[in-house]
């Protein structure tokens, strides 16, 4: 067939649009308790499988290994260690940040998993894998039950 090309690019047809959706994510059974403990008690909790002995952080409602429902919660304290980290120099839009931000995966003893968070009160060149860190919480009246109720993790002196 004569699939004539439209040579004038101004005639290139397109339609603009977007999805008019907003989202509201519930925290779930385990997530709600986890964030509530951070908000009310400034502590990091894990959930423990009685059968396998695995402690999950962030806590899950179920054991991924054996599918037991997890009812037992364990206080992990506020101290962890840097498992791996990266230093971000650009923001999400690709613009240069005034100050680089250090993001780290922080693990807690033998618990399975960890938390991704920022590191603070430390320079990028001073961070090392295995470095002990502790959570710095916002003051109680500023806490909303969000992962950002923890301002950042800082090195333990």
């Amino acid at each position: 067939m004569s699939l004539e090309k439209i040579t004038d690019p101004r005639n290139m047809k397109h339609w603009l649009g977007h999805m008019e959706t907003d989202y509201r994510y519930t925290l779930g059974i385990a997530g709600e308790r986890f964030l509530n403990e951070i908000k009310e008690n400034a502590r990091i909790m894990g959930s423990k499988c009685k059968k396998c002995g695995v402690i999950y952080v962030p806590p899950r409602m179920y054991c991924e290994e054996c599918f037991e429902k997890l009812e037992e919660w364990v206080d992990l304290g506020i101290n962890g260690e840097v498992y791996t980290y990266t230093v971000a120099y650009l923001d999400r839009e690709g613009k240069r940040l005034a100050e680089p931000v250090i993001y780290a995966l922080i693990t807690f003893g033998d618990a399975f998993g960890g938390l991704v968070h920022k590191l603070g009160e430390v320079k990028p060149e001073e961070v090392w894998i295995g470095m002990p860190v502790e959570a710095v919480f916002k003051p109680p009246y500023e806490r909303k039950g969000s992962i950002t109720d923890i301002k950042y993790f800082k090195p333990i002196q």
Partner: peptide, 12 residues
Amino acid sequence: RNLKETGKELAY
């Protein structure tokens, strides 16, 4: 209409 569980928790 609304359940509190996350999608993962419902699947579980």
